[in-house]
């Protein structure tokens, strides 16, 4: 098992955070949040990966045949559902913000200063 997937996960997390911190557009910001989240998918799948093993679908495989860990795949699937919910909600909020304030730029949203 190489370290490459873990490095990818760490990179996605950090670059996504960088995107959020420097974002000038709320839609861009929400997509950056999805990038951060995709790092957790990579991390989870990397943890459950077994070299040379098949997908964990036990229909026509012999008992005892190597398979990758199905638990992390279930976790990832749950995570994807959560991610879809959060992204949809945030995009809806971003659209509403645009309706109310006329801008997508976080730098121009200053109602809550102090």
């Amino acid at each position: 098992m190489s370290f490459a997937p873990f490095a990818v996960a760490a990179w996605l997390f950090v670059i996504g955070l960088y995107g959020i911190v420097t974002s000038r557009h709320l839609i861009h910001l929400v997509i950056c949040l999805s990038v951060v989240q995709s790092s957790t998918y990579v991390l989870l799948l990397a943890i459950g990966y077994r070299t040379g093993a098949a997908a964990p679908i036990f229909v026509d495989t012999k008992p005892g045949a190597p398979a990758v860990d199905p638990v992390v795949q279930a976790l990832t699937l749950t995570d994807v559902v959560v991610g879809a919910t959060v992204s949809a909600l945030l995009l809806a909020l971003a659209v509403q913000v645009h309706k109310a304030s006329g801008t997508f730029d976080p730098d121009e949203l200053d109602t809550l200063r102090g």
């Binding site: 997390f13 989870l44 943890i47 638990v71 976790l75 809550l112």
Partner: peptide
């Protein structure tokens, strides 16, 4: 306006918190 921005800040920061939790769970698993 304020309500929407408050919710947006709330959602973004707390979602990142949730991803941190998930990463922690993954490592422990």
């Amino acid at each position: 306006e304020g309500s929407l921005q408050g919710a947006l800040n709330f959602a973004v920061t707390n979602s990142i918190g949730a991803f941190l939790i998930l990463a922690g769970i993954g490592l422990l698993y």
